[in-house]
């Protein structure tokens, strides 16, 4: 475990804490894409299939359980909680997220890490995570005003994978000396998708103005 990966995991955890905080304190999920959250449930479940078969460390197991648990809880809040579900921006959250699943699955069949079910699903989850933020970014462009917690959530979510890229560079030079095409290229694509959001987020933060993405 290196500092970059720990920082990445903590940033990822913080993003989820911020989202849960927003939903629980404001009893609202306005501006949050349910489709992105549903994709994350698929990402975590398909990535952590080895949760009960392979023990890496307490930290690893605990974090996997937290990520699966919180992502399911968020979808539950947005779909079933009597108050929160009424605040879901259903009309703006229109990205056809199910269209993302077949290409990622086909890509996982074509370029799996290994040709076994768990590795194909692991590759699928890596590819799907790279594009899972798209519905959320589209929704942000449509949101007239993005509240601070939602903006922070997306920023932290983008920052976590950027920290993972630093972790991969660090591990390449200090440990593995091995190229890992699947996570690296997916991670770069994933982080690149946040590029314009990062630009407008940092600009709004520096100018102390409300975050707005150009449509």
């Amino acid at each position: 475990m290196n500092i970059f990966r720990l920082a990445g995991d903590m940033t990822h955890l913080l993003s989820i804490v911020v989202l849960l905080l927003k939903i629980r304190t404001t009893k609202s999920c306005a501006g949050i894409s349910l489709k992105t959250q549903e994709l994350y449930v698929i990402v975590f479940i398909t990535r952590y299939l080895d949760l009960f078969t392979r023990y890496v460390s307490f930290y690893n197991t605990a974090m996997k359980l937290v990520f699966i648990g919180t992502s399911v809880a968020i979808v539950w809040y947005m779909r079933l909680h009597k108050v929160v579900k009424q605040t879901y921006s259903r009309d703006e959250d229109t990205f056809k997220h199910y269209l993302l699943i077949p290409p990622c699955f086909i890509l996982a069949l074509l370029i799996p890490l290994e040709f076994t079910v768990t590795e194909i699903l692991w590759s699928f989850s890596i590819y799907l995570e790279a594009v899972a933020i798209l519905p959320q970014l589209l929704l942000l462009q449509r949101s007239s005003n993005i509240d601070n917690l939602t903006g922070s959530y997306v920023f932290l979510l983008g920052a976590y994978r950027a920290l993972y890229i630093v972790n991969w560079v660090y591990r390449f030079f200090t440990e593995t000396h091995k190229i890992r095409w699947i996570p690296w290229i997916s991670g770069l694509v994933q982080t690149a998708l946040y590029a314009d959001f990062f630009y407008y987020y940092i600009k709004s933060w520096k100018n102390h103005e409300k975050l707005r993405l150009p449509a």
């Binding site: 974090m63 593995t176 890992r180 699947i182 996570p183």
Partner: peptide
């Protein structure tokens, strides 16, 4: 299994 080091990451 798989490429070195990826399976201890989240």
């Amino acid at each position: 299994p798989g490429d070195g080091g990826s399976k201890d990451e989240l």
